[in-house]
Design a protein around this nucleic acid. Structure first.
Lengths: 323, 323
DNA sequence: TTTTGCCATAGGTACGAAGTATTGGACAGG
DNA sequence: CCTGTCCAATACTTCGTACCTATGGCAAAA
């Protein structure tokens, strides 16, 4: 009978009780609301004890549930301690997680990955390494880093690739630009003014693809200015050297605005790429957790797939990335 | 990270350590050995801690595992206590489980069902009721019992049926009978001597089916003597009134033997039948546990059965049961 | 040798926990 | 009074994984 109650159930119960609201608790647990609803009902069913009084604006724990909650908190804490000591006893020393990231990957994404990693493996350090795609792929190849956050597409196959959500590319311009008064920009308007790009050598495949996309709507890619970081790009736009394409939702300097381009949806993917033969044991756990939180998906090499819908709270936190 | 360790894992770990042998522990847990093997390996993987030293004749817990084991025992005990108090608080009173069983169902089976039930729901009494199939089905129909152990097939549809054992029918005769020297009895030999049967009214469908089966091998069912319990049947055989068919492996009076019939495999199924609308809340848990336990019943005593025969087929009301 | 008693691996099934899409109830604001 | 919002619950579908069977390898016992 008590085998029907696992730690997971206690965790869910506690979250629901603390939020007083299943929807909110589901968000906190990175679950969908109906899943949590059925879990709670299942628990009541299994124990043959009503756990919540439901009313119009949420749920409220019954006394029996309160018992489970306080006891459950205790149990969860004990479990964590127990595991920690067992692990400590065996003196598990992690080799640091060597994580690369390209400067064209959203910093928030990088930080989220790091924070997930350290929350899962507090004892494991992260050795970061930044660079452009070409460099990082080489490091992955040589086994000098364990994983990297890169923009797709990537060359070379055989890398395990976990693409994150797509985000649109929009035009970045000065807010006093005449076109800034429009809600959308026609592709033709970009001709000759879209001149600021990331240094092509940093990511030849992505650059090539971008040029193709521009070509498809009749714009000649006119790479007048090249630079290496998103910040530099914004500075160059500020100084009036032309327009640039940036990720929708990325943080903008004051005096700059972004506008979508009519009729096209250019998107960019960020992805977590694994080294071919990593000895880093934290990788599977990391992937697992990221998948749960971000709906990350696997793809054999670099073919992008339609993403499933994004978690609402992730949208809120502006974690929509190049896709 | 600790979310990868559930109570289930601790339970398994403890069992393995206590037995010092995965195979034996698996048996105790009603699992298959490879399942438990992979569970243990998964746990080691998840924790990144070796838990067992494996050698030729078993496994032996590492110090880290010992920590988990003692702590795990504690946690499991706490969980049970916690659930008990939570339930107590809500003053859950079970209505007794009203269980019927026909006298033609193996008594060991009945006892197993009862013991599983009380081990799952110690607070819930069992109100037993015996009778013949017809009576018991009527009681189920009227909702006066919650479930019954019966021999299939059953008449009347809409009953949820969980068949579990298939056992062969063999001929029961006196050990000094001339035919008793043979290892098997030819069907023709039974003609006119197979005369002792269960009272047909007790289970008309089963009786009818039996007559059909006899007919298929050219024996006319010649019901000379009728009786109501397996014991009585044996007495009648003892007193020389003829042969009878009994369940293979059932306990025999001294002076009686059983012999299989050449070329045929008559079997009889026992099943747990549920009342149409039971309010008995223990039923789902009971079913669940019985399924788990009886699946493993490959070894005990009988010839190779199709192991999945234990699996209840909910759609299947009857018919495939005698085979 | 063969047999026996372990555990591990491989491959498949099935059940449960997760998902999406949608409904229904209970307000609150226009 | 409707309509939009905010809940939870329902009705599906999908996917992960715990479990199964079958088989293999490896020692020690027969």
């Amino acid at each position: 009978m008590s085998d029907l109650v696992e730690f997971r159930n206690l965790k869910y119960l506690i979250a629901v009780a603390e939020e007083g609201n299943i929807t909110r608790a589901a968000k906190r647990l990175y679950l969908a609301q109906p899943s949590l609803s059925t879990q709670m009902r299942g628990l009541e069913e299994a124990l043959q004890v009503p756990l919540f009084i439901r009313d119009r604006n949420g749920v409220h724990a019954t006394p029996a549930a309160e018992i489970l909650i306080t006891g459950g908190r205790e149990l969860l804490k004990l479990r964590d301690g127990l595991i920690a000591t067992a692990r400590a006893l065996h003196r598990v020393t992690f080799t640091p997680m060597r994580l690369g990231f390209s400067s064209f990957v959203d910093h928030a994404l990088y930080e989220m990955v790091c924070s997930v990693h350290t929350s899962l493996f507090p004892e494991c350090e992260i050795a970061s390494r930044s660079g452009d795609n070409v460099e990082l792929l080489l490091l992955l190849q040589k086994g000098e880093i364990d994983a990297a956050l890169l923009a797709l597409p990537i060359s070379g196959s055989g890398f395990k690739t976990y693409p994150f959500t797509k985000s649109r590319l929009v035009v970045c311009m000065k807010s006093d630009d005449p076109l800034a008064r429009l809600k959308e920009i026609a592709p033709a308007e970009l001709q000759a003014k879209l001149t600021i790009f990331q240094e092509p050598k940093q990511h030849p495949e992505a650059h090539l693809r971008l040029m193709e996309m521009l070509d498809e709507v009749g714009i000649r890619g006119d790479v007048a200015s090249k630079t290496t970081t998103p910040h530099n790009i914004q500075w160059m736009v500020e100084s009036g050297q032309g327009y640039a394409l940036v990720r929708e939702g990325s943080e903008m300097h004051v005096g700059l605005v972004t506008r979508p381009v009519t009729g096209v949806t250019w998107t960019v993917d960020s992805a977590l790429i694994l080294g071919k033969s990593t000895s880093q044991k934290t990788v599977p756990g990391l992937i697992r957790e990221l998948r749960k939180r971000l709906r990350l998906q696997v793809s054999p090499s670099s073919v992008s797939k339609p993403p499933r819908s994004v978690r609402p709270d992730i949208e809120d936190e502006n974690l929509r990335l190049f896709a």
